[in-house]
Amino acid sequence: MADQLQTGADVKTAPPAIDAPDAAPNGGPTSSSAPVLSTENVHVFYDGIPAVKEVTMDIPRHRVTAFIGPSGCGKSTLLRSFNRMNDLIPSAEVTGKVLYHGQDLYGSGVDPVEVRKHIGMVFQKPNPFPKSIYDNVAFGPKVLGMKVDMDEVVENSLRHAALWDEVKDRLKQSAFGMSGGQQQRLCIARALATNPDVLLMDEPCSALDPIATGRIEDLMVRLREEYTIVIVTHNMQQATRVSDRTAFLTVELDEQDNRTGVVVEYDETEKVFSQPSDSRTEAYVTGRIG
């Protein structure tokens, strides 16, 4: 169990082996289901200056968790610490613990490549590879060496992303011929193809029109049945439409005027929007600031 993230041997059966509900491997509080991700006093620094600080939160299984807050409050930075994408930025440093089914993602010996096999990500701007639609979806399973029927994986993933019917006749065509919304659903299909456990979505609709946005939101609600989703969004209505739980982050200025993000409030979405317990949250969700 402890070395789950370090072994690359068995990628195909990965999530079920470690996410048995109610297992509570760290002996933590046994709610209806143990959290998939839980952070303990996480700080993320860029060049030694904290961008987000003191984050301690649990991300429940098979729920959509939204991060909202003003620009520069560290929502994306925090999200990117969940699959170690911050590792790609040389000046970034993460302290504290990010426990994934009880294992610290930043523990010694944990391979970030293994982490990202389990925790997929969809980005702000659709970023399909300059390859065919088919090859985009097949990319992940191929590079992970998954022994699967590729045609089947591609079809299933595209169906899951509600894209199959639109592209089934042009799988060999370039992904760049698709609309922005289709490209973003392709990126979701691409992330699903490696059979992840968690899907991180960093403002996935910010580059899309309202109709494409609506499709992606419908998709998120459906994907929740099988995946744990964490979404960063600028759009508060979107958070109310798709998420079960919402974390509100805001910026605090320290003595040197460094801007640092903090989690102000984290609760059921309905509560955050209707009866926020912090005045800053209330000001933000009612549109008075931000």
Binding site: N83, M85, L88, V113, E114, R116, K117, G120, M121, F123, K125, N127, P128, F129, P130, F139, G140, V143, L144, C187, R190, A191, T194
Partner: peptide, 15 residues
């Protein structure tokens, strides 16, 4: 080559 393409690949567990 845009950084976003690299990030997309890393996010899929690429080395």
């Amino acid at each position: 080559v845009p950084r976003s393409l690299r990030e997309g690949a890393y996010a899929l567990g690429s080395t």
